[in-house]
Lab assay of single mutants.
Amino acid sequence: IEKFKLLAEKVEEIVAKNARAEIDYSDAPDEFRDPLMDTLMTDPVRLPSGTVMDRSIILRHLLNSPTDPFNRQMLTESMLEPVPELKEQIQAWMREKQSSDH
Rank of each mutant, 00 (worst) to 15 (best):
D68E: 01
L6M: 11
V15I: 13
Q89P: 02
E77R: 08
M79K: 06
D101P: 09
A16E: 11
T42V: 05
S65N: 02
R33E: 00
S100V: 13
G50N: 01
S26T: 12
L40R: 01
T51N: 11
S78D: 10
L75V: 02
D27V: 04
P35L: 05
I23F: 13
D43V: 02
T67N: 05
P48H: 01
M53V: 15
D34E: 01
E9L: 05
A92Y: 10
S56C: 08
Q73N: 13
F70V: 00
I58V: 03
I57V: 12
L80Q: 00
M94Q: 11
P35Y: 03
Q98Y: 06
E96G: 11
M94V: 14
E9T: 08
S78H: 02
V52A: 04
R95S: 12
T42F: 12
N18Q: 05
L86V: 04
D101A: 07
V15E: 13
E13T: 03
V83A: 07
D27F: 14
P35T: 01
L80I: 04
M79W: 07
V45L: 02
T76P: 02
D27Q: 12
N18S: 10
T76R: 05
E22D: 08
I23R: 10
R46T: 05
M94I: 13
K97M: 15
M41L: 05
D101Q: 12
M94R: 14
S100D: 15
R33S: 04
I1L: 06
M74Q: 07
F70L: 00
S65T: 03
E12K: 11
M37G: 00
V11M: 11
I23M: 13
N64D: 04
M37F: 00
P66S: 08
M74G: 05
S100T: 07
D101I: 05
P84Q: 07
E85K: 13
K87M: 13
L62Q: 00
V83K: 05
S99V: 01
M37R: 01
D38E: 03
D43I: 00
K17N: 12
N18K: 07
V83G: 00
L62R: 01
Q98V: 15
A92T: 10
A92S: 15
Q98K: 14
V15F: 04
S26G: 12
H102C: 11
M94T: 14
E85D: 10
E77Q: 05
D38Y: 15
E96T: 15
W93G: 01
P29R: 05
S49C: 03
R20W: 14
E13Q: 08
A21S: 10
K5E: 09
S78N: 09
Q98H: 12
E81A: 09
I1M: 10
H61Q: 01
R46K: 15
E12H: 07
K10Q: 11
F32S: 00
V15S: 10
P66G: 07
N18A: 05
D30Y: 06
L6G: 12
W93L: 03
V15W: 03
I58L: 03
T42A: 12
E77L: 02
A28D: 09
I14P: 07
K17Q: 12
R33I: 04
W93C: 01
L62M: 13
S99T: 13
K17T: 12
E85Q: 10
Q98P: 13
M74K: 11
D38I: 12
K87T: 10
T51A: 08
D24V: 06
R95K: 01
E9A: 15
I23V: 10
V45M: 03
R95A: 14
D34N: 00
V83E: 11
R60P: 00
Q98M: 04
K10G: 12
Q73S: 06
F4M: 05
H61P: 00
E22Q: 07
A92G: 11
E9R: 11
E88V: 10
F32Y: 10
E12T: 09
A92I: 01
M94K: 10
R95Q: 11
V83M: 08
N64Y: 15
R95T: 13
H61K: 04
R20G: 10
D43G: 00
M79T: 03
E96D: 10
D43T: 02
